[in-house]
Write a protein that binds this DNA or RNA. Structure first.
Lengths: 322, 322
DNA sequence: CTGAAAGCGCTTACAG
DNA sequence: CTGAAAGCGCTTACAG
């Protein structure tokens, strides 16, 4: 890379003058300015931001990092929206990292950035990673993931599953089934646990549990086809109430259910915008809200807050016409 | 801020040893390691990333900046999704800035970051800002904004408006109206132009044009109320076809239209997920696609591509039941 | 208006 | 295992 020294040599001026010329040209003769700028352009000079920032001595960071899994789906962007709103209002920037196989590389990249804090989305950190962040004085907070003794903003998935079951029971359903996602996740486990435990308390067991593969790269029509099949299985098994892991699944299920002669109740999860328009009963997670909270929390942590921050949101059942 | 020198003095070791201790402790006696780490902790040491990076000498950047307006709405996140997908797959990070009143500050902040490129969303840059980016060798590309001689990925809004008009005409509508957004934008202007020019070609003029204030902070029910009023005005004026600036507006209009005894055709814009579920005819902009394209483009620009990149997407009319 | 020099805070051969 | 020193590329008083 070409540096100021190179330009100085080529143009015949000193490094100081070159630097001044490059930064607005104050106190530099027009003649020198022109010559320096030209040779800089000709040599393809591009300033080194690290050196510049170091020399300037302004080290305050206003950028908060965001660490997510590679395949985090739609819901990431809902939360991001909330974070974006508060962070931008307060003059912070957001730097998104996604963590894949080579975690070490990402982690060292993260600490090479001048961050004031890090929001870790829906995934636990390894112990040595925590140590690294601590050693580098980068405060972090989990979002949508709870861990004892760590800062976190999360949602009570167990409660969400329970709420869905309660609703279905209140509708008089006695054969209640579940449709989930094949890969699974801690969130799903907890929702399912809340769901099952509520059924059990009422002397029931799931009438059927089906899983649909929702991998990133499958087309909507494919997803539709698979889901319809699972829904039919459940209906054939006599289900009169179905709880879906997420609204995307529920939306497909709804089309199928509405074709049936008998009434089958349905509860989704997430309350995506479409849910309202098709009148789907669903469990709402205030994603933008928790995004906002995480943002506020990381700001106060970066300001030196030392108490552990822990907020757990209750999902809310939104009763509509299913 | 406490620096290595301070720790060196306090712990009684040299700066070199302190640095080694802080970086894994290789080649440092256990005794020194412990002592140094402890005093670093006690003194609240936090490394200076600029100095570190400068000393390490690894200057390659893998972060692309994203410059947006403060109040960019939902659609930003759709595009972001597309960018995120390709950028992350290729190992790049995304750093989001939003531009408000104090542009200068943001711009100088941007160039203080070690970016490999910048994507500028839906807003023009000022001439001096372009100069700054050029001088700092930060390639940039416009997304959803076209400007002669500049890199850009955009959508043909004129065509989108024309397509909406054509559809309504094909349905036999003769009293065709428009509902827009109060604040306006270049995008709206162009859609409206395409819309009007197509009507004119067919010997028609807009039967009515209404604007709804959609500012960020108004509640949904407020928006609903206002929009319903405008829709009624248009219907009272005899409209048999309505084109809306965006689906959010169209969704509200749809509810109102479905209450009417006579048939009124409706076209939205954006094709948000809810549109499919309520069977709204609308104009689809492939937002994730253009996000992906922008990402690919900035990568190649940062790799030295010198030809001007220009892609213009055609919006697509999605015919459903309105 | 210009240049030489010190300094930003860290890392890393090098010598011991 | 440790310390002194050079160097990363830039900026900024300072003297002229």
């Amino acid at each position: 890379m070409v540096k100021i020294k190179d330009i100085a040599e080529q143009s015949g001026y000193g490094a100081g003058t070159v630097s001044r010329a490059l930064n607005g040209g104050e106190g530099v003769s027009p003649r020198a300015l022109k010559s320096i700028l030209e040779t800089a352009e000709r040599m393809g000079y591009s300033p080194n931001t690290y050196a510049r920032n170091l020399a300037k001595g302004d080290f305050e960071s206003v950028t908060v990092g965001l660490l997510t899994l590679l395949d985090t789906n739609q819901y990431l962007f809902e939360m991001l929206r909330g974070m974006y709103t508060v962070l931008n209002n307060k003059g912070y920037n957001i730097l998104m990292f996604s963590i894949g196989k080579k975690r070490d590389k990402i982690i060292s990249h993260i600490i090479s950035e001048n961050l004031c804090g890090l929001i870790v989305i829906a995934t636990p950190l390894l112990d040595n990673e925590k140590q690294i962040f601590n050693a580098n004085k980068i405060p972090y907070i989990y979002l949508d993931h709870y861990e004892d003794g760590e800062n976190s903003i999360s949602v009570d998935n167990f409660r969400g599953g329970a709420a869905a079951a309660e609703y279905l029971l209140s509708k008089g359903c006695t054969k209640i089934a579940y449709i989930g996602e094949t890969r699974g996740s801690k969130h799903q486990d907890k929702r399912l646990k809340g769901f099952e435990s509520t059924l059990k308390k009422n002397g029931l067991f799931p009438t059927g549990i089906e899983y649909v593969n929702m991998t990133f790269n499958i087309s909507y029509s494919d997803l539709e086809k698979r889901t319809v099949q699972k829904v039919r299985n459940l209906i054939a098994a006599g289900a009169d109430g179905i709880f879906c892991y997420c609204d995307e699944l529920a939306l497909v299920a709804l089309d199928e259910i509405r074709k049936q002669p008998r009434e089958i109740f349905l509860v989704g999860y997430d309350d995506i915008p479409a849910a309202r328009h098709v009148s789907l009963t669903t469990v709402n997670q205030p994603l933008d809200k928790i995004g906002e909270e995480a943002a506020k929390a990381i700001i106060s942590l970066s300001a030196g807050e030392s108490a552990i921050i822990n907020k757990r949101f209750r999902p809310k059942l939104i009763i509509r016409n299913t």
